[in-house]
């Protein structure tokens, strides 16, 4: 309360709803600084480059999850869509299908699952949670039927370059501290930019926020709610298959069990990034920061000597802290 009145006096107009997102940025920076001070390897070009390249897929998934969560919905199927598109994609490559066609097919598969979720939600009036839970099991099941082996991409494919070493922008001769960028990161950045434009610069985007505020109001205002819901679940599923393309290209293999729990990592990133889980408020850039916070937890905890088994506890505590922060902000608002 004190802070609020103080900021009013100085005329600084920060929407209280943006506080969780700003907090996420601050915490990300603090984590970087802490890592740098204690371990000396964080604020370096090499570290940042690999952080982005290794987690481009998570950034894309977090952006994907932002769409349904903004409306108060959720898409639990994104992890399973990563698996099915990955398995199908690598199978096709082994069979000699050219990479460009493989990419089109992978995206099409994602779109089918997104469309299915949209139909279940809009035509059969199902909760997004239940609808995407069922498409999640369906996608995972089909992936397992196709293959339960770890499928390796053939040598000399036209695909791996997407997630490969990438080009070195600053080649640091002494140590492995190069600023590098691969195509996966570029894809992620494009996804972020396009999503930002959709959400903030198009009527469809504003309808998404309106649905998050009140679906019935949005309907009574004559907004195309149903069509927008289809757009949302199609977008999240297609982005999930793009995440799959980036990830599979990076590791060079696919398996039916990959992506288990990623939907929840994506939810964590979105929540940490300051999007309200009940919808209506949030920013796609916040989700990007959320994904980065989520990504940096792994190296940081391992440097601290936290056993890998306990990392999820750290993630859980962070989510808790951010949700409490959101609650406080909402509370201050009501006062």
């Amino acid at each position: 309360m004190m802070k609020k009145s103080a900021s009013r006096q100085t005329g600084f107009r920060l929407s209280p709803r943006a506080i969780p997102t700003v907090a996420a940025v601050v915490i990300f920076l603090l984590m970087l600084i802490m890592g740098q001070v204690l371990f000396g390897t964080y604020i370096r070009l090499g570290f940042m480059s690999s952080l982005f390249m290794d987690h481009a897929y998570l950034v894309i998934l977090a952006v994907a999850m932002t769409f349904p969560i903004l409306t108060g919905g959720i898409d639990l199927s994104v992890g399973a869509i990563v698996a099915i598109t990955g398995v199908v994609g690598v199978k096709l490559m082994i069979a000699g299908v050219p990479a460009s066609l493989v990419i089109v097919i992978m995206i099409a598969i994602g779109a089918v699952f997104g469309l299915l979720a949209g139909v279940l939600i809009e035509e059969f009036n199902m909760q997004p949670f239940i609808a995407t839970l069922s498409t999640m099991f369906l996608a995972r099941g089909i992936a397992s039927i196709i293959s339960t082996d770890s499928l390796n991409m053939p040598q000399n494919n036209n695909f791996s370059w997407i997630g490969g070493e990438g080009l070195k922008i600053i080649d640091n001769p002494k140590i492995s501290n190069d600023l590098s960028l691969n195509f996966g990161v570029i894809v992620a950045l494009v996804v972020v930019a396009v999503s930002y434009v959709i959400l903030h610069k198009t009527r469809t985007g504003r309808t998404i926020y309106a649905i998050g505020g009140s679906r019935s109001s949005a309907e009574l205002m004559g907004l195309p709610v149903k069509r927008t819901q289809y757009v949302i679940y199609l977008t999240s599923a297609v982005l999930a298959s793009i995440a799959s393309i980036v990830y599979v290209a990076g590791i060079g293999s696919a398996k039916n069990t990959m992506g288990v729990g990623w939907e929840l990592d994506a939810v964590a990133a979105v929540v940490i990034g300051g999007t309200l889980i009940t919808g209506g408020y949030g920013y796609v850039l916040g989700s990007v920061i959320g994904a980065l916070v989520r990504s940096i937890i792994d190296p940081l905890t391992s440097d601290f000597g936290v056993p890998a088994e306990a990392v999820t506890i750290v993630v859980g505590l962070m989510i808790l802290a951010f949700v409490i922060l959101q609650r406080l902000v909402t509370f201050v608002r009501k006062e």
Partner: peptide, 23 residues
């Protein structure tokens, strides 16, 4: 029947926002 999460102006114009070349 308005959306309390949006601004007054957004509510007034929702679905009828003024569009330029860049959205």
């Amino acid at each position: 029947n308005l959306c309390t999460n949006l601004s007054v102006g957004e509510n007034v114009m929702l679905g009828h926002e003024v569009r330029g070349h860049l959205g």
